[in-house]
């Protein structure tokens, strides 16, 4: 465990909490993609299946439970909460998530560490996490005006990925047999997807203006 890894996990948790807080406090989920949230829940569930029999550390187990619980809560708010569900931007959130799920599943069947059910599900979750933000980015692009909390949510998520890359570099340099190229490549793709967003986020921040994405 190193400082980059811990920072990454905390940033990830913070991003989810910012989103939950926004929904809870404003009773609105405007600008949030339900598709992305559902994909993240699928990522967590398929990756953390081993929660019950593979105990690695209390740290890992607590985070796994918290990630599954908090993303379920977000989905519950968006689909079931009487006030919040009315603010859901259904007409703009039209990304077909099968376009992401099917290729990731096929890729996981072909490129994996070992051909077994749990290994393939785990690998699927790595690929799916890399692209799960796409419906959210498309929604932001369509609605253009991004409120501060939604902007902060996506920014913190991107930052979390950047810190994972620093963690991999650190581990590669300090641990003798550390290698996991499937995870690295997926992580690079995932972080790359945020670069464009980062640019506009930082521009808006520097000029202390509201974040607006170009069409």
């Amino acid at each position: 465990m190193n400082i980059f890894r811990v920072s990454a996990d905390i940033l990830h948790l913070l991003s989810i909490l910012v989103l939950l807080l926004k929904i809870h406090a404003t009773k609105s989920c405007a600008g949030i993609s339900l598709k992305t949230q559902e994909l993240y829940l699928a990522v967590f569930v398929t990756r953390y299946l081993d929660l019950f029999w593979n105990f690695h550390s209390l740290y890992n187990s607590v985070f796994k439970v918290v990630y599954i619980a908090t993303s379920s809560m977000i989905i519950w708010y968006m689909k079931r909460h009487r006030g919040v569900k009315q603010t859901y931007d259904k007409d703009h959130d039209t990304f077909r998530y099968l376009f992401l799920i099917v290729p990731c599943a096929v890729l996981a069947l072909i490129v994996n560490g070992r051909f077994s059910l749990f290994e393939i599900l785990w690998t699927f979750s790595i690929y799916l996490e890399a692209v799960a933000i796409l419906p959210q980015l498309v929604l932001l692009q369509r609605t253009k005006n991004v409120d501060n909390l939604t902007g902060n949510y996506v920014f913190l998520l991107g930052l979390y990925r950047a810190f994972y890359i620093l963690n991999w570099i650190y581990r590669y340099a300090t641990e003798p047999h550390y290698s996991a190229w499937i995870v690295w490549l997926s992580g690079l793709v995932q972080t790359g997807l945020y670069l464009d967003f980062f640019y506009y986020y930082l521009q808006a921040w520097k000029q202390s203006k509201k974040l607006q994405l170009p069409s």
Binding site: N112, G113, A180
Partner: peptide, 10 residues
Amino acid sequence: GPVEAAKDEL
């Protein structure tokens, strides 16, 4: 391996 080392990450 291509993944094994990262199994302790989240």
